[in-house]
Simulated scan of single mutants.
Amino acid sequence: MSISVLIVDDSAVVREILSQMLSTAPDLEVIGAAPDPIFAMTRMKLRWPDVVILDIEMPRMDGLTFLRKIMEERPTPVIICSSLTEKGARITLDAMSAGAVAIITKPTVNLKSFLQEAAKELIQEVRDAAGARMGAFKRIATSARGGEHQPAPKLTADVVLEAPSGLEKYRTTEKIIAIGTSTGGTQALEYLLPRLPATCPGVAVVQHMPEKFTASFAERLNRLCKVEVREAKNGDRLISGVALIAPGGKHLLVKRSGAQYVAEVKDGPLVSRHRPSVDVLFRSVAVNAGNNAIGVIMTGMGDDGARGMREMHDAGARTLAQDEESCVVFGMPNEAIGHGGVDEVMSLERITHTLAGIRG
């Protein structure tokens, strides 16, 4: 059975390229390409799509308003197609909070060649989005208000740092929390982090998100939280009451400096096809914190974090995975469970309650 897709973008070039590109996949069917949300709503009355690809800035009605209408009427996987600008990043984060499941970052120049080269990745984004559990998003959101391009080789965390040797010494009892998430993670983090007390251990977070979006995301969370939330910088201390968000396009590691934990932000290859990678963060925590750490893997596509969580588990850390019912996408937690690295599987609400009870 094919996946039906509706494209909503005021650029005729984007509509044409995306339509042609998606039509090359036998399991995808483009049922319309609308220049703005008003046209799109008319088209959706005839046939509701499985996935919507949506621009943000459009005439007559902006994409964010349209997204909220979709989520109120009939929650549907929406992929945001947005340019990488500071203003666009903030608006796109509002869209992610409102229910968008993924971001396609289109450049402001050489747009046609970019879309053509990224065809395989974009087609896979649509396939993955079609499997999102939008009912889970709705529950989280309600609670919170209360040329053919070859994919990158799937490298492991070995390309960034060595695996734990089993000889590590943990000369401190200070706790830290490491969290990894992807699709649906912006909503999950907006539920979890504001409920943590200022006395909680230092938190390191990898949320799969493009460059330029993470700083705005951290600022957004900081306005909602009792803990201080900021985009991680090299040398930042990971201390009680502080949550550090991995910068888009960089790996985040936790290192030791005497008895203190500090952030290391570095370049490097994609790991598990991501940068930042959850596997890299989790491995660094396994090596440098061991049984002083709590690892949490939440909603997301793929298997990033599964190997790193097993390494944390084997180093003595307590490891938690979000359950299927509360995930928008159960892929990452399910893979971590399959690798044997998860101590407990629990709902997002229970994860939040558990972390809120831990003192730094």
Rank of each mutant, 00 (worst) to 15 (best):
T186P: 15
E29C: 08
V109W: 01
L111Q: 08
K212N: 14
M332T: 07
L111G: 03
A306T: 07
D94V: 01
T173Q: 13
R127E: 09
L244S: 12
G63K: 10
E86K: 15
M44G: 07
D267C: 00
N288K: 07
V227D: 06
S272V: 00
S113L: 11
P197R: 11
D62Q: 05
G88L: 04
A243Y: 03
I239F: 01
D303Y: 07
K120L: 07
L238D: 09
K112T: 13
S83A: 15
A144M: 11
S83I: 13
P333E: 06
G180H: 11
T105W: 00
E228W: 01
D27P: 06
T214W: 05
I3T: 15
R43V: 09
A286E: 08
M21T: 15
T319V: 03
T299Q: 03
A286W: 13
T85R: 10
V160C: 14
G305T: 08
G302H: 11
C81V: 00
K226F: 06
Q124G: 00
P26R: 11
P75E: 02
F213N: 07
A141T: 00
P210A: 11
K154Y: 06
T186L: 09
F114N: 14
K175I: 04
N334V: 00
M58K: 06
R127S: 03
I245K: 06
P49Q: 04
G235K: 13
A119P: 05
L244N: 10
N334E: 14
E125K: 15
D314P: 04
D10R: 04
I337F: 08
F114P: 01
L84W: 00
S257P: 01
E335D: 03
G147T: 08
H353T: 10
